[in-house]
Design a protein around this nucleic acid. Structure first.
Lengths: 353, 353
DNA sequence: TTGAAAGCGATACCAG
DNA sequence: CTGGTATCGCTTTCAA
């Protein structure tokens, strides 16, 4: 891999026709006062025109202002505006891993839900690192975002800093019920139970579980659901395999599982990324899915749909969750709200149907 | 799928011990003046303490200020700070599709590269819609981001608005050489050629191409590379199959390809997402990769590594590109720079090796 | 219909 | 050392 650098100055330096004020001169942004001066009106009038109020402006001056705005390429400074108006028209979004298809789809859904309200999204990823999470929390609070959507991996206890933030916060993907913060959570317990039962209905008597890291809250919830389904069927629960929420994590888990004396014939995987890793590793080991290993996962991302074979997955209603989150943020000031959303099984080939 | 809403007020209203000043009272953020008042010093001194300068402060007052800051949970307002200081410590990032693994990985790499410089990332996705792109461009310019990384799908012509932005812009993933904007581009032509040649070396005499949408610039570049490799081998070039840069696009393309009288035995796919779609669709059609269809794609995402079978792909050095982009942004003011970065083939099973 | 001026919350100069 | 105060760019009230 090589990189070649051409300095554009050579080619363009002589011509200099494109840019209005000479080549590559980055002018400081014009201010409203500049516009006023050029239009021969007072700064206030410029505001009246741009905001279409609160005072009327004569047609003549209005036109002069509009011309000046165009001539200068004037754009009002959102910071100054926000300082005066009190709102930033931005929300913060903190996710553990933007490259995980689930969070990627969720983030995009949130952006789509936010855009109609004129809200931009400031995103940060934490890699499950509490220090990074705290840093982003502080940074976004200082930027005075209008709201904050936090997908935290921390334990309920550690979440309290988010309480004191003077910014409306909604925590997704988990439920610290005891904190005065709004939550919108997926029914992880119920979801994992449904996934597990589906495998049981196929006649499997032993269903293993590939879990996330121990520290991550959702991971525990999904284990609970799996265990509940097994117990309700009067079956023993094997030890879950803990592994990161990544492709690699899934691969590692699969290798461990198949290295055993009695390799599993059915497994619930706690996320789509991991499931894709399991599928990939299984293929490399010469095992066929679903024949040698039946598999169901949780998330419902598009990536699971296009795995080979397609992965049966308990779909989280991502759009709905995103909309709920944004709605909750916009309902600032009200008492905290706790929403629990359930999923539905999307059946594909990996489970043996 | 159902959603149940519990109003947290019921459970928590009575207790109200957690939050310092009563349950759910969202105080407005304290200002520096509040801190000064509480500490019994002037506002200026608060600044001196917080910024550790420019003037020295006596130990006593310093401590009083620090106590007041802690007591109030004071966080300086980044907007006001930025207005005064001239920098926002944020960069904008405009991508076509954050759920596309390539852009997801690139975005995350950019965030990682930006964080050490204290830069937050404001991300927007455009879905290849020029109107959305323009909207984000304006919005980010108004927010006065310190720089803007644009992954545009527009033709070179349409990019000129980005020139007048008064914000340092770097365009990635394509190269409008004629505009006074920095670019950091992947060698799409060379890359596609390498991918194609690899298939030719395997003895294939007909190599098809699954391209992106006609309007998207990179798509054309990659077609050029593929065509060049074929011509250089004295082979004819079939008509490329145009399809969106998505999983679904890949599936559609595969179905079209295999519906032909003479289905292809070798294909270069212009992105990893599409390639995963092709692999998935092929499996559904009962075709084996690489035996029935040898496949090479371009991008080098982790998703391609974990496809089944693993996809041979021309890897873009994502980290390096991200670092370059951030570095270029930080070198604000200099003449535009054009960087071209080449990739390397990552060989997996899909090509028949 | 227009404009002067008071903030919004911070920084840093200039005087004490 | 400490503290007024002008300033960043904008909105909006109040007075003309």
């Amino acid at each position: 891999m090589t990189a070649s650098v051409h300095d554009g100055g050579d080619d363009e330096g002589a011509a200099g026709t494109a840019a209005p004020s000479g080549p590559f001169v980055r002018r400081a942004s014009p201010t409203r006062d500049d516009v006023a001066r050029l239009a021969g009106v007072s700064p206030a009038v410029v505001s009246y025109v741009l905001n279409d109020g609160p005072k009327p402006v004569s047609a003549g001056k209005r036109e002069r202002v509009e011309e000046a705005v165009a001539a200068l390429g004037y754009r009002p400074d959102a910071r100054a505006r926000s300082l005066r108006l009190g709102r930033t028209h931005a929300i913060g979004l903190i996710v553990p891993d933007a490259a995980n298809p689930f969070f990627a789809e969720l983030a995009q859904a949130i952006e789509r839900a936010a855009a109609p309200h004129g809200l931009a999204v400031l995103m940060g990823t934490t890699a499950d690192d509490p220090a990074k999470e705290a840093k982003y929390l502080e940074d976004l609070a200082e930027r005075r975002v209008d709201g904050l959507i936090l997908i935290s991996s921390r334990s309920d206890q550690d979440l309290s800093p988010a309480t004191t933030l003077a910014v409306p916060v909604v925590v997704m993907d988990r439920t610290p019920d005891d904190l005065p913060i709004s939550t919108i959570a997926f029914d992880n317990v119920g979801g994992a139970a449904i996934a597990t039962r589906h495998l049981l209905e196929h006649g499997h008597r032993t269903v293993h579980f590939v879990a996330g890291p121990r520290e991550v809250a959702v991971s525990g919830r999904r284990i609970d659901g799996w265990r509940a389904a097994l117990e309700e069927a009067g079956l023993p629960t094997p030890r879950p395999t803990h592994t990161p929420f990544t492709y690699e994590g899934g691969r590692t888990a699969a290798r461990q599982l198949f290295a055993r004396r009695h390799p599993p014939a059915a497994v619930v995987v706690s996320s789509d990324v991991q499931a894709i890793g399991v599928v990939s590793a299984s293929a490399e080991l010469g095992l066929r899915i679903p024949d040698d290993l039946a598999l169901v996962s949780v998330d419902g991302t598009r990536a699971a749909a296009f795995a080979n074979p397609g992965i049966t997955t308990l779909s989280q209603p991502i759009e709905q969750m995103a909309t709920q989150a944004v709605t909750t943020i916009l309902a600032r000031g009200g008492d905290p709200v706790h929403v629990v959303i359930c999923g539905a099984l999307t059946i594909r080939r990996s489970c043996g149907c």
